[in-house]
Nucleic acid binder design. Structure first.
Lengths: 412, 412
DNA sequence: AACATAAATTTAGACGCTAAATAAAAGGAG
DNA sequence: CTCCTTTTATTTAGCGTCTAAATTTATGTT
């Protein structure tokens, strides 16, 4: 048998020439391993339809490339007889990904291994607006450097990075020109900021990433038709239909910018902003409310937190405000439910935890507003939802392009 | 060389054993042929990346199955030297498809060949509502029989049938239960009506089919992010994002049922209905208008046609009605444009031709209502838009499942 | 008639897999 | 402890599908 034109493994001992395996099979096996934990040859036969010979050959190939590692021979529970199966698992240390949330005020970076487990998390505020593009770039670079240092990893092991920005991004990852906020984010994130590292850098709208995060491991896990609303300051919606993110021709899908047209909504103000606004209004009108005490004597600045807390303690003015907010959200969700017919609408963002106080109002009102009321839930991600979605996007990229990328600890 | 386990072609003359070809390659070549006209081996090499040997083998195989036919040896223009290339083309007579529009009042059937060319078209009205399910079934069967007779084709050559219905249909082709109109259409179209023929019968929402039609060969040809509004009696919207139809979890995506929430719209009434309604209102108010003359002395029933005609002739009352309708449509389109960000919105249905009178108003108002105004156009399909879309859906099915179907004139 | 050209056809063999035979690594029975 | 059973890994032969290269064929040109 003549040796094939294949790299490495030329140690002509007993070793027969390794097969050249079809890319699709490598990907399929890798995908099975990422979905499950440790995997045996028999598992792969069931999952992929390949022969045992091929399945194991694929595992050996992936292990040689560094994507997969073989576990020492502990038996799987349950099996007792027969030759012990070799066990392989996806190597989460084959690299890492970066998930970033670059907002108006703050940049957040998550470093995650290839199983999506967080290795480090760092946030930093930008200089007070208006920060120059150069200043924003510098801050972003710095946060990334700190996060990698905290994870104890060199930049070379980063296989992909994804960035969530609160402006319109089309399906090719380009910041759509001409939008209100685009100049704050179209600062060469892909071309300049990370050019030195040579990482693939993906850009996406923050609400879209929030949707990816929820479908990945949040309350929307496994839901194929899903809407996620970032509802803190500005309403923004990420839409997943049949498991795929919607963008529209310029990336504007889900931008609820013209909500002025919707009765009883009138703007794209989010929950926190409305709570502040109406809280201040109540104070200005000298209504008797706990909010005043929570704000304290020195200042007049109501923060959303105080309104929610006052309402929780039974304050009627605050509860009235939450009712108003709930009604408004119900209307927005009703429109979403009618137009997109999602199975589930998730309210996310920093305000999500508080937003659970709005759920009774929302679920009560929804059936009156639409014939197809979706389930409504509140995200449990907190303010890392966008960065978590960015991690998911980067992981998707790595999975898709695995065979073109070089794992961190690839042998030779 | 041992003969393979392959059907037919056992005439052991010079004929070498035919190759068994990969399904994906058969499909790829078939797809190229459907897209282009006559095709040579060299064309296929360029289009598919296969070798000439394989490409021609695929053609011979497809020809033997009946999907493709070889053209007699006229040279293609331009080439002058060398051995003449064999030329193959997709065989449009390998079968036919049915595209149906089953509405409340009328059933329309198109018979089309596999290139999508119409071979016959028949419409028939149902018994006056409420027609029983049995009566509706009988009418539908009858229209189909007449259409096939008109095309001169037996039922056996039908490879697939698609039906557009004006109710909610999910992405698996099931009529969603519990909807206003569902009982008129959930009459066993797939299970009973055509059970005898053994055709694959696909069900889809009428507006969705309209969208397929426009993207196939209408004003939306090739547009990847497209909304089509059926705007005659009831507003219904078909949405295509990134080239794919949107359904939502129950098929309700694009149902504008809760438009009550949208300022200045208030219902899902379509253009024709509004024209009638406001036309009657004007007559009742005794306004001086040409509409009265067009309606005639005997009756008081305004039809939409009269309003459009009066407006075209300069009647101010009628023009005022069209303005109101235009404003309303602009608002609906603005909401669509904001939520979906389509490149183009097409107004379709029987009323489409008249609707071009509304375009100036709509395009004038849109930029005020949304930051992302889509292009707006009027369909040129007339009232066959749904049936045409059904043809397209059936063709897609045939293309997808070609290798599982038996062409009409398959040899032996 | 001889040549040039572009395509078809034939042939050998490469590639990536499967199927079947064989070997290995364990537990259990005697 | 040895033998048997079970379960898996490994090896081997070879099959199906394609490519690459050589050969042939059909045409136009000189």
């Amino acid at each position: 048998m003549l040796p094939n034109k294949v790299k490495g493994n030329d140690v002509s001992t007993t070793a027969t020439t390794p097969q050249v395996l079809r890319l699709a099979n490598l990907k399929a096996v890798l995908s099975v391993m990422r979905a499950n934990g440790a995997v045996t040859g028999t598992d792969l036969i069931a999952a992929t339809g390949l022969t045992r010979a091929t399945a194991i050959a694929v595992c050996d190939d992936l292990a040689a490339r560094g994507w997969v590692r073989e576990l020492p021979g502990e038996r799987l529970v349950g099996t007792t007889k027969g030759r012990p199966a070799r066990r392989f698992e996806f190597n989460p240390a084959a690299g890492c990904v970066l998930g970033m949330d670059v907002g108006m005020a703050t940049a957040t970076v998550l470093v995650a291994d290839l199983k999506g487990r967080t290795l480090a998390r760092v946030s930093e505020r930008f200089e007070k607006p208006p920060a120059s593009a150069a200043s924003r770039r510098a801050t972003i670079k710095q946060v990334v450097a700190r996060a990698l240092a905290e994870a104890g990893l060199p930049p070379s092991v980063v296989l992909a990075a994804a960035i969530g920005v609160s402006t319109v991004v089309d399906r090719h990852g380009k910041v759509a020109a001409g939008h209100e906020l685009s100049e704050h984010f179209d600062i060469g994130l892909q071309t300049e900021v990370f050019a030195d590292y040579g990482w693939p850098v993906l850009l996406e709208n923050d609400a879209n990433l929030a949707a990816l995060a929820e479908r990945w491991s949040g309350v929307g896990t496994g839901v194929d038709d899903l809407a996620v609303m970032l509802a803190g300051e500005r309403l923004g919606t990420g839409l997943i239909e049949s498991g795929r993110l919607l963008h529209g021709c310029n990336g504007g899908a889900g931008e609820v910018g013209t909500l002025e047209l919707v009765d009883g909504v009138g703007s794209q103000d989010g929950i926190a902003r409305l709570a502040r606004y109406w809280g201040n209004e109540a104070l200005a009108a000298d209504k008797p409310t706990l909010i005043r005490e929570l704000v304290g004597p020195g200042t007049n600045r109501v923060s959303a937190r105080f309104v929610f807390e006052a309402a929780a303690r039974g304050d009627e003015v605050a509860q009235g405000i939450l009712d108003r907010i709930g009604l408004r959200m119900a209307r927005v969700i009703a429109v979403l439910g009618t137009f997109f017919n999602p199975e589930l609408v998730v309210i996310g963002g920093a305000v999500a935890a508080s937003a659970s106080a709005l759920l009774p109002t929302i679920t009560r009102e929804l059936p009156r507003l639409t014939a197809t009321p979706p389930r409504v839930a509140v995200s449990e991600f907190g303010d890392a939802i966008v960065a978590a979605g960015a991690v998911r996007l980067a992981l998707d990229y790595v999975e898709e392009h695995a065979m073109e990328l070089a794992p961190a600890d690839a042998p030779a």
